[in-house]
Design a protein around this nucleic acid. Structure first.
Lengths: 347, 347
DNA sequence: ATCCTCCGTGTAATCGATTCCACAAGGAGG
DNA sequence: CCTCCTTGTGGAATCGATTACACGGAGGAT
């Protein structure tokens, strides 16, 4: 016998079926102690018989909790964020939360749209990887006490109320520059992300600092302005290649811009790494199979997602989580030139 | 002057501030005709002053509408589904709906978990790309009248209540086989998806039929059983390569298994297409840059997402949408061997 | 001048749960 | 035997909106 129309029965129907009051049904469903074994059993039987499922909307209205987290990311099409989203959802599910993902497409107004929508839905907390320096809307939300955690990127000056979960690439960038120097490359260029994002500016800074340690400067002509999208990587690279003295190596601040750079290099009929080297921030499975395999800086993406969820849930449940910073690491492949001592370093 | 604590004011506060009743506030907010210009103005001013935002939870409880669509996909990490999700969200947003994505990871029990959660939240409709032949839960939901649309994959025998939005790859597969034959390849193998999924079995059928048209058979040894994940593609390919008579070309039924196949081929120290050819179902930007560029069958992914949303919203709003089938097309690159007449066919 | 429409508005019921409070029954202790 | 406490239960308020219904007043028709 199929339980009659599932989703249609309400708590009142269950109460009637079980011969108890709605209060008792609610107590059974929420595991309250003071319910007699007899009632509990009859309620459970009624629930089963009617195929009853509590209405989460009504429950949320009453309890002021949705058991839902909002995740606003800058670009779902970027495999890095996809992986982040996946680990966030996984960690959240383990803690009994659902996740609603908002894709900002690197557009501040779309980001605001999602934040507003999520706030309207009274999500319990918000995980954000901001596309910009901080919209008034988001700052208001923080001030109003919305539990929030920044992940990957953050907004400076928001204060301790918003922990930041991110990875630090300084050392990995330093390793990269040392690797490039070791291969004899001196003219190193970077395709930066938007200056309004922390990852956009930090990576350039780290790169510049690492170069300085090697006594090299980073000329303006070797800084391409990108927006974390493939197209911008393509354009920046074309500009580099048109220079009287093109760089030996191009370092893209994210994987999509590296894809664009590859496009541009290929379009020119040049070969990597013979004619020009390429490296990228953010490692993805495909980098192993590009022509040639791309040297990249890998973030502990899944761990970041997990840490972010734990921090956020801590905040929601009244604790005061601290920021988390995990190290990124260099993965050397062949796109910057063959290391003469070893064949390849990655499996 | 910042509007005081946003998110904290309720409709009653607005009513008090504007000197009207909550009914009038609600009418203004919902654009009802019978409100005097004076009241409307004062309500709007009060809303602005208090930074009032209606509580979507309460609204949903009353109206029985959440203006939310559920999207349950088989694997977010698969770029095909990511793009699908993106276009779904975009189309839904344009129609005033939000989307909650559930990632099933190709696991039926996880798929059920998400369907259940989404149903509990009383989403207005469900977009599903089933990982299996159909769970009782989903069938019950359909029977109970939940508006549902299948996208990409579907469950046979559910009936006209559930339109299917998908792409038909038969002709593209035929084109692929013709292309391979033209290049002199005769021993063609396929890495199939799970038989429980329609895309898993259809693609094998289409391949087999196309081979038959060329007078070739598809021996069992040349059918690898995969699960749409990279690892399974790797294993299936290793098995092919260990055969006394390995295939000339391996056709992977999705892009992740193609990635795995690439791994396996590379692990053996073989070269594509010289030693063995590779083709894939589903095209992704990275295929242009792999070594070599991968010949693939491209689906009109974004259009599929859009069509699916429109079909679902049609159902939600009481109309009776029909199923949609869009053609996929072959994109020839270099992974199956150089075409002697033209250099490359894709930009 | 009287009656009948509209029009704008407010009061109160409602959506489906949770939970405070009151209360009845039963056992323990005096 | 009477009180007090514990335990299980139900009635009713509540969350924050939407909306059916009633009602008072202005204006038009007769």
């Amino acid at each position: 016998m199929t339980p009659s129309p599932p989703g249609s029965a309400g708590i009142k129907d269950v109460a009637a079926e079980a011969g108890v009051s709605v209060a008792t049904v609610s107590r059974v469903l929420n595991g309250h102690p003071s319910v007699s074994p007899g009632s509990r059993e009859r309620v459970l039987a009624a629930v089963e018989a009617l195929g009853y499922r509590p209405n989460a909307v009504a429950r949320s209205l009453r309890t002021h909790q949705t058991h839902t987290l909002g995740l606003v990311i800058s670009d779902v099409l970027n495999p890095y964020f996809t992986e982040l989203a996946r680990s966030v959802e996984e960690a959240a599910r383990a803690l009994g939360y659902s996740v609603i993902i908002g894709n900002a497409d690197e557009r501040p107004e779309l980001q605001d749209h999602h934040v507003r929508t999520l706030l309207d839905r009274r999500i319990d907390g918000l995980l954000v990887s901001p596309t910009d320096g901080g919209s008034p809307l988001m700052l208001d939300a923080v001030r109003a006490g919305t539990p929030m955690v920044f992940v990957d990127r953050w907004i400076p000056g928001v204060g301790v109320d918003v922990p930041v979960v991110r990875s630090d690439g300084r050392q990995a960038v330093r390793d990269l520059v040392a690797h490039l120097h070791g291969l004899g490359h001196r003219r190193l260029a970077i395709i930066a992300g938007p200056a309004a994002t922390t990852t956009g500016s930090e990576r350039v800074e780290a790169f510049r600092d690492a170069l300085r340690e090697h006594g090299t400067a980073l000329p303006d002509a070797y800084i391409g302005q990108g927006d974390f999208q493939a197209d911008s990587g393509r354009r920046a690279t074309e500009r580099f290649l048109a220079l009287p003295e093109p760089p030996d190596v191009v370092f893209a601040a994210d994987n999509l811009m590296a894809l664009g750079a590859l496009d541009a290099i290929r379009g020119r009929g040049l070969r990597v790494p013979h004619d020009i080297g390429l490296a990228a921030f953010d490692d993805i499975p495909w980098f192993v199979h590009t022509d040639p395999a791309v040297t990249a800086i890998a973030q502990p993406t899944a761990e970041l997602g997990r840490a972010a969820v734990h921090a956020l849930v801590d905040r929601i449940e009244g604790r005061s989580p601290r920021s988390v910073t995990l190290p990124a690491r260099l993965v050397v492949r062949r796109s910057c030139g063959e290391d003469t001592r070893v064949r390849r370093s990655s499996p």
